[in-house]
Every structure is written in structure tokens, then in C-alpha cells.
């Protein structure tokens, strides 16, 4: 699917860029974003190391499995294929809580760690598992309890009540999260999204 999204973005930007006479800008954007990507990745090394180190302490002390047990009533419904007190549950919880608190630079390391642990459980290493998709849908639809960035902008623009959008933001986040759960649970059963899984299974059988 990302194939089509990527093709759409690339093809439209070149066609529309040509129509608008903006091809030089398009080219410039391509190069400057390529550079930005590496800057982002390099900027991530330090925070990534910090949180992975802290996570390791949490794992060895057993704190991750304590957390996993605490949210088991919810997690076993959302992620039925993750075994009880598996470290993936704790990483998912930490990633989502970092999102809820608006701590975006802590969220990414936890999220990537969660993906790594989900990949260990995944039978088919090139095809996304149900748990992975559910996790990502929850992640991208995250509820933000403290939308710090937007609050900062509102305060700097002399809003009379910068905080009045917190309630509406939480409610809109609840809408997105509810939809994320319903959509993943319904879509994961549809044959069109299981074609790759079925194909792989058949190939394995023939061998």
C-alpha cells in the first residue's frame, strides 16, 4: 500500500510541478528533504540510546512485565496475539503514554522498540502482523492530554484562553482512537488485506 502512496506523491508532484512551473522548487525540495532525513536520524541516535538504556533497566528489573500485567485486561482484547506479560506490551504502553503526554522525542524510541518486539512474534517477517497494524493505528490516532506544542503557539499569540482547546482535542482524539480500533478489527478480517499472508502460506505449503 505504501507503494501506491509513494507513487501517488511522486507522480503528482512532478506532473503538477510541471503544470505550475515549479519543477525547480520540486527538485530543491527533494534534495533538501533527503538531507533533513539524515539530520533527523542522526538527531535520534542520542535519545534513542538514552531510552533504550532506560528500557533495558526496566526490563531487567521486571518493571515491564509488571506494567504489562496491569494493562492486561485491555491489552488482551486489543492485541490477542501477544503473549501475556511479553515486553512488547510495556513498550507499546510507554509509547502511547509518551504520545498522550506530548513527549514526542521519547515516543519514537519506545515505538521502534515495540515494533522490534512485535517483529519477534511475527511469523512472516515481511508482512505486517495484526498487532503491528493495531499498534500503529493507535499510535497515529493518539489522544493528546497535554497538546504542549499547540498550547505554546496559542499562548504566544495572546489567546484569551489557550487551554480551552484541551477538552476538544481529547474528545477528537477519542473519536480517532475509537475509529482506529474498529477499523483495524474489521479490516484485518477482509480477504483483500490477507492476500499476502495467504500467498506466503501457500508458497510454504508447496515447498
Amino acid at each position: 500500500m505504501l507503494n501506491y502512496v509513494w507513487l501517488f506523491l511522486m507522480a503528482t508532484s512532478i506532473v503538477v510541478g510541471a503544470i505550475n512551473g515549479k519543477l525547480p522548487e520540486v527538485t530543491k525540495a527533494a534534495f533538501s528533504m533527503a538531507e533533513t532525513s539524515v539530520k533527523i536520524a542522526f538527531g535520534l541516535i542520542g535519545v534513542m540510546a538514552l531510552w533504550l538504556g532506560i528500557m533495558k533497566i526496566a526490563e531487567e528489573s521486571g518493571l515491564t512485565s509488571v506494567l504489562a500485567k496491569l494493562i492486561r485486561p485491555v491489552s488482551k482484547r486489543l492485541f490477542p496475539d501477544i503473549p501475556e506479560d511479553h515486553p512488547a506490551i510495556a513498550s507499546i504502553l510507554l509509547n502511547l503514554s509518551a504520545n498522550w503526554l506530548g513527549l514526542s522525542n521519547a515516543a519514537t524510541p519506545f515505538g521502534l522498540k515495540a515494533m522490534e518486539e512485535l517483529q519477534e512474534l511475527n511469523e512472516n517477517k515481511e508482512v505486517a502482523s495484526n498487532s503491528m497494524v493495531t499498534f500503529l493505528a493507535l499510535n497515529t490516532a493518539a489522544i493528546t492530554l497535554i497538546p504542549a506544542t499547540i498550547l505554546g503557539v496559542r499562548i504566544s499569540l495572546d489567546s484569551q484562553s489557550p487551554q480551552e482547546i484541551i477538552g476538544t482535542t481529547i474528545l477528537a482524539g477519542v473519536c480517532a482512537t475509537t475509529m482506529a480500533i474498529i477499523a483495524t478489527k474489521v479490516l484485518q478480517r477482509m480477504p483483500i488485506f490477507n492476500r499476502e499472508l495467504a500467498n506466503e502460506a501457500m508458497a510454504a505449503k508447496e515447498q
Partner: peptide, 10 residues
Amino acid sequence: IKKTRHAVPA
């Protein structure tokens, strides 16, 4: 992961 299944629509 190369095949993202229902991740984009969801």
C-alpha cells in the same frame, strides 16, 4: 516490513 496490509486505510 514490506507488506503493510490494512495499515494505511486504518
